[in-house]
């Protein structure tokens, strides 16, 4: 599926601020599932954007505005082609998770991190899924994925990043990154390497509440998770929507948790009471042949 994405973030500071410095992670990654066809970032006031690929393979755009300003808008526009993922054909057993080479390669995704730490209750929830599915990695991962969907109900604006997953579990509600963090923590608690994914989702649900005409939606950035399956690779699942990650998911990047792939972070000098407006517009494009795609690039 070919998608145009327009990520926009606007700050209104209410007073003059200066010396703003930022890092943006909004660019879709190119991998086996998707190909980035075009991308550009513009800011207002205008600034020089310097881009690089970080440790996790995510493109980062850095920019700053030193002069006093009262308003800052960042727009990232991307065109991306997503492909369907082949179905998993093997299903390794839990022993494979303990192979030294596998552990060594994935140890970063097995550790506790600030947003994906766990207590006994959370680990017990994860273990209960394995008790049901047996010591088989794909089934267990799917079990955890389903369990997360059942444990939480979706409530926009209920949490902010900084709430522990334990607390999210206690409350039983959250937003997409809470789902993703909970799934990541549950996987890791039973020894399945798991990572947090930031991205976009082309969805039927529109924030405006209006009917979607099918080709254009206004959404927010999204989050899901990936689990490492020995001998296979990463299995991507979206627990918020209780579905496997597919053609409508556009990945920006991954990391141990939210902090490694937060869409925008930065500093500025001035009063704290800024209002922030974020939107993601996604448009489905007509199918194009790959030759045409090459030309467009």
């Amino acid at each position: 599926m070919r998608l145009d994405i327009r990520y926009r973030c606007a700050f209104e500071y209410g007073a003059l601020v200066h010396e703003s410095q930022n890092e943006l992670r909004a660019c879709p990654v190119s991998d086996t599932r998707q190909t980035l066809l075009g991308y550009r970032v513009t800011t207002s006031p205008a600034s020089r954007v310097f881009s690089f690929e970080d440790y996790w393979g995510t493109r980062v755009d850095t920019f700053g505005v030193r002069e006093p300003h009262i308003y800052l808008e960042v727009v990232a526009e991307a065109t991306v082609e997503t492909k369907s993922t082949p179905l998993l054909t093997t299903s390794p057993m839990f022993e494979a998770l303990r192979g030294p080479a596998f552990v060594e390669e994935h140890w970063e995704y097995l550790e506790r991190t600030p947003h994906a730490d766990w207590n006994g209750k959370l680990a017990a929830e994860a273990q209960s899924q394995i008790d049901l599915t047996g010591p088989e990695v794909v089934s267990a991962t799917l079990g955890i994925h389903r369990r997360v969907g059942a444990l939480l109900s979706y409530r926009p604006g209920t949490t902010y990043v900084g709430v522990d997953v334990d607390e999210v579990l206690e409350r039983g509600e959250g937003v997409c990154q809470d789902y993703a963090h909970l799934a990541v923590a549950m996987c890791r608690s039973v020894g399945i390497p798991a990572r947090y994914v930031s991205g976009y989702l082309f969805t039927d649900r529109d924030d405006t509440g209006e009917d979607v005409d099918g080709d254009e939606v206004v959404v927010q950035t999204h989050a899901w998770f990936e689990a490492a399956i020995p001998g296979v690779g990463w299995l991507a699942l979206d627990p918020t929507n209780r579905q496997a990650v597919g053609l409508r998911h556009v990945k920006i990047g991954h990391g141990r948790d939210y902090d490694d792939v937060s869409p925008l972070r930065g500093t500025y000098s001035g009063p704290r009471n800024a209002t922030l407006e974020v939107s993601v517009e996604m448009r489905r494009l007509a199918a194009v042949t790959s030759a045409q795609a090459q030309q467009q690039q």
Binding site: C9, P156, V161, P263, L264
Partner: peptide, 15 residues
Amino acid sequence: HAEEFAVFHSLETIA
């Protein structure tokens, strides 16, 4: 010179 503090803002995913 710079104000005493630079404010951090982090944008959260809210979908």
